[in-house]
Amino acid sequence: MRRRTFVKAAAASLPSFGILSAAQAQSKEIRMIESGGLSGDSIQVGYIDPLKAKTGITVVRESPSSLGKLRALVESGQGGTTLFELGSGIVQQAKKLGLIEKLDWAAINPAPMFPEAKNEYGFGYQYFSTIMAWRKGVKEPKNFIEFFDSKAFPGKRCLPDFPHYCLPFALQSTGVPIDKLFPLDVDAAFKRLNEIKKDVAVWWKAGAQPPQLMKDNEVQYSICWSGRVVGDPAFGLNFAGGKADLSYIAVVKGSKPDDKLAAWKLYHEMSLAENQAKAAQVISYTGPSPDLDALLPKDKLWQYPTSKQNKDVQYFENAEWWAENGEAVNKKWEAFKLSL
C-alpha cells in the first residue's frame, strides 16, 4: 500500500517522464504474475527497479503463477495483467491453448542472448537446474546410477512429484546417457521407478520441502532445485546428469497495446547482462546473456546452472516432447502414485 502511494508521488514529481511516455502512449504501470519467493525478489531487484529508475514505469508483481490462472485471465477477457511467468513446457502448452501472444522482438531490441531463450512466444529469463543433493556426512553419489543405488548408498530419498523430472532421472539410472534421453522410454522409466519407490520417503510438490526434509534428517538424498541448496554448508550436491531448464515470461493474450509497449521495455532490461548479475545475487539462477559469466563472482561460478562446467554435464529440457506426450504421461503418473 505504502509503496504504491510512494510510487504515485514519485511519478507525479517527475513530470518530464509523463511527457515522454505520453508521446509513445505507453502505460505507466503494468502487472505481472510470477512464481514468487526469492525468484520474484530477483525480478524486482534485477529488472523492475532498473526499469523504474530509467523510465518511471512501475511493474506490480503478484504470485504464484499457474497455467490455470492464465487460462482464467484470458477467458474472463480482463486486460489487467500483461506478463506471466511460465515454465518451458508450459509455454508450449499455453501456445497450443492460445493463451499467450507473440513477442515483438524488434521492439524489445535485446542485447545478445542464448538462442533458446529468444522464443517467439516467451522471453527465457532465468536458467535453473534440477540436481541431486544430499545431507552432508552420507556417501556421495557421482551420477544417477549411484544416486538410485540404495544398497551402496543407503538412505531415504526425496523426489519431485512431477513426472517430467522423475522419468528422465530414472532412465539415467538404467544407464541411458543424457544425450539419448529423448524420446523418453516411458515404460522403462516407470519400471525403474517401481523398483526404487520403496526408498522414496517423500514426493515433493514445493521446492522448499527437500532442503527442509534433509535438514530434519527425514531423508538423506534429494532431487531438488539447485537454488535451494547451493551455498548451504549442510548439503552436498552434484550437477552431473541434472536438468537445465529455462523459465519464461510471456505476454497474456489480449493485453492492451499500451501495456505491451511498457512490457517491451522491461524485456529489454531483462536482456542486459549487468541486470542479470544483480538478479543472480538474489537467487543462484542465471539470465540468458552470454556475457553474464564474466560479471559473476569467480568463486561462485560453480553454483550457477549455466556456468561452463555445469552446463556441459546437464541435459536440457525437451519442451516439444512434453507438449506432445505430457497428458498421457500425467495419467500414468497418477496411476503410479496410487501404487505407492
Partner: peptide
C-alpha cells in the same frame, strides 16, 4: 484472491516457498 494477500494465504504460500 488474486493480488490480495490474507494472512492464511500468505502463510500457505510462505510454507510452500520456504519454511
Amino acid at each position: 484472491a488474486g493480488k490480495y494477500e490474507t494472512v492464511p494465504k500468505k502463510m500457505f504460500n510462505e510454507l510452500i516457498l520456504e519454511v
